[in-house]
Structure formats: structure tokens, C-alpha cells
Write a protein that binds this DNA or RNA. Sequence first.
DNA 1: TAGTGGTCTAGACCACACT
DNA 2: GTGTGGTCTAGACCACTAG
Lengths: 259, 259
Amino acid sequence: MTSDDTPMRPSGKHLRTAVADDLRRAIETGELPPGATLPTEPVLMQRYGVSRNTVRNALGDLENAGLIEVRQGRGRQVRRREPVWIYASRSESRARRRPSGVDSWVDDMRSQGRVPRTDIEVAVLHAPVDVSERLNLDNGATVAVRRRIRFADDQPWNMNDSYYPMWLAQEVPAILDPADVTTGLTVHLADRGYAQVYYNDELTARMPTPDEAKALNIGPGVPVMCHMRTGVTKGGKPIRVTVTVMPGDRHRLLYEVPA
Amino acid sequence: MTSDDTPMRPSGKHLRTAVADDLRRAIETGELPPGATLPTEPVLMQRYGVSRNTVRNALGDLENAGLIEVRQGRGRQVRRREPVWIYASRSESRARRRPSGVDSWVDDMRSQGRVPRTDIEVAVLHAPVDVSERLNLDNGATVAVRRRIRFADDQPWNMNDSYYPMWLAQEVPAILDPADVTTGLTVHLADRGYAQVYYNDELTARMPTPDEAKALNIGPGVPVMCHMRTGVTKGGKPIRVTVTVMPGDRHRLLYEVPA
DNA sequence: TAGTGGTCTAGACCACACT
DNA sequence: GTGTGGTCTAGACCACTAG
């Protein structure tokens, strides 16, 4: 028994890596195009001469790399990608043409030939620490939140939660009115003297929590982009924090910024 | 034998899920704070009354969720997070104070008390399709590329590749000069009549390729943010595409945009 | 040397999907 | 029903880290 007597071991690599790499190559070269069904576990066991656990470990690596998706009883398929564009910041000329009273999700989706929908609910709760920091509130202060789940073609697409300090919700009762009037609400705030003059946007990428994965139907190996937007008034006072959680394989965020 | 005779099975869930959820709870409540070492595999087998494979599957789920990291022979630890801020777009007043000749990476890192370094190399190659599309070039056209690996405190932190059309590299030879003069190069281009007046930024999140994971020392369960910036001249001509690949757990990207 | 995690095997049984 | 993937067990051996 030499140290390299097993079949299909290209170069000192482990069996699971060898199997995963061979399948990865097939996917990247288009030999297994998007949507194609992969060979079944027994076939792969035979082809590479390894045990079922090893095949499953290799396939698990590809799944966690976001390359394939699996449905019990139906096999594994090369993942399709069809991201949607989200405009986070447009040039002046284009931004101004947006009709008030319709939110940007509706705009963005319609322009891409998709059918938008938004489910919204409102609540009052203790602010998460991320939010209270950005709103200059004490830890544990209460805030009003408008939670949205946004759909495209009836599929849950992202989550978008807007937090307002409680004093503002009392001054502008529309905040706690569960009607889908995002841009309208912004105009409403401006009329009351709380116009947002700029936004501070923060972007991170991470893996979804189990709750997020369930609510947005996110499979293994798909991260989320997390977008936190703080709206600031002329006086420098933060009045809103909006947290958007977007599955990475379904979104492309766009900014148009001056050089 | 009933269907639920195993210990520690809270609610119809699978064993691996029960184990993973219990450990996840401990991490989220701070019972296992960042940096803490998890119990060993034999201990967990005993505690939950499951086999080693099941313990390993549960721990693997936590690893792929980005919650823990593992080093052979040393055990598993709750992952620490210490992201760095990257300013993608600042307000006018702050942007203008930046000294020319020093790139933004150096600026951003020094202001956060870290020691920046940039390794750079230049090359001429066929443009990836993503790049040729954005530069309005034919598929397979050659481009000049400045590849950077950026370090913080001597750790590889992100990759930053700038692509220029070949005609521009011939007109502005500094593009193919491997010296770390990012902002200087921008000024240089402006002097030759190729000032960039705005950027189109596109952001996505995905899992790293094996190459990226190796080069940037990215562990399992950590996604990357991919930032593609297209620089456009006054005449609307794209002259540069910069692709930045940032491990999600080490970066926080900031934009300051007008409302 | 002892203890950790890493890989691999073999086999049993369960859950789901198609036909 | 047949075939797919999902879970779980038991055991062997290897590779790395620490004392």
C-alpha cells in the first residue's frame, strides 16, 4: 500500500477536494451549465471510487460555495443566477423623475419587468443596539419600526426595516400607519420640517441567520448583503435607520457617485 | 422505541440542528463570547448523546454560518469580528482634504490606527467579460491591469484590480508603471484630459473562489463583498474598471449620499 | 505523548419526489 | 414502488498542536 493508491487523486489532495474540484471545473467550463442536474450520489461514488460520505462532503463544499442547490428526492442542480438591480443612489437628473408616493422597490422592479409587492407591518419595540447607536438614542430606547418584506414575482426577495425614534413617531403619526407609502412618508416628514438632506450608508456581507434564511428562502452557501441607511436632517440629526437584508445571489446594488 | 427517545431533541428537529441551535444560542447570548473555545468533539458527543459525525455536522453548520473557526489540533473558537471601514464616497468637504499622491487605502487604514501596505503588479491581458462590457470593449480585447493586494497590519485584507483599455495605457504609460500611486495616477489621467467625473459602483455578495480564499486567508462561512467601480469621463466614456474583493467579516463599506 | 480535529469507510434507516 | 437525497451510527487511521 503506497500512500497514493486510490484512483482519481490528482496531486496530493484529499479525496473530497479532488471530487469537488473536478465538479467545480465542470461547472465553470460550462460542461455542467446552469440548471443542469449533477450525477447522483451512487454514480459519483462509482466514478470516483469513494464512499458515499466522501461524495456528500464534496457536494456539500460546492453547496456552501453557492455553486449548486439540492432538493431532496430530486437531485442536485447547478445554481442559476438572475440578480435584480437596486438603485441606492442615482444621478440628479434621473433621481428627480421619480413619482412621489411610489416607493423605489416598485420603480426598480417594474423597470426590470418584474411584478413587485410589499408586505408591511408596524411595531414599537426596544431598538437593537446597531439602530440606537445610529439614531443617537440610549440603549434600550423604544423606536417605531416599519417592517417590510418585498416580493418580486411573488417570491420573497428582501427585507427592509425602517426605524424611527419614538418622539418622531408621535409627532408624525403616519409613521405607525401600515400603508405602503415609503416615498410619501419621506415627503410627509419633510413637510413637518424633518427633511433628510443626506444618507449615511453602511454595507457589509455576512451569512444569513436561520430566521432570515427561512423568511427569504435562502439556501446554503448564499450570503446576504446588509445595507444600513441612516437619514440625516439639515441640522445633522439622524431621524431614520433603514436596514435592508438582500440575498447576494438575487441583488446587485448600484451607486452613481461624483468622482 | 418511540420516535422521540433520543435525549436533547427539543421539538421534532434533527439531532444536528438541535446541537447546532444550542451552541448558536450560547454564542448569541454571550455564554460563549468571541474568542472562547468550544467544548471538544468527545465532550459534545457525551453532552448531547450523539455520534461524532453528528457533532461534526452540527459544528460544520456553525462554521459555514461564519460563527466559529477551527484550527486543527487546537479546537474551535467563536469568531472575532473587527471590521475595517472603507470610504467609498465622502461628502464634498471631507473628500477634498485628501492629499494627492496617497491612495485611499493608506488614508483609511492610518486613520483607524492600522499599518497599511500595498503589493502591486501590472499586466496586460484579455479582459474578463465583466470588464470588457463595462469598458465598452469587444469581447477578448486586451486591457492593462494594475493588481493590488492590500494589507492591514501585515495581514492580506482585500484585492483591488484596476483595468484600463489598452489605448489609454499607450497614451498614459504611467498606467503600466508598477508604483503605488493610485491617486497620483488619477491626477495624471486628468492632466491628459481623462478626468473621471463620476463613478458607477456595483455591489454584490458571494462566496469566495478557492483562489480568493487562499490569497486573502478567508475561512469557511465568510462571504466576500465584490465592488465594481466604473470611472466615466465628462464625455461619458468609461476609462477604468476597478474590482475590489473584500472579505465580509473584515470590511464595512461607507457611502455618504445626498438624499 | 496525549489530545485535538480531519478524512474516510460501511451500513442502516428515514423523507421526499416522480411515475 | 423505485430512486433520490437526509440523517445517524460505529470505527479506523491520519495530521497537527501542545505539554
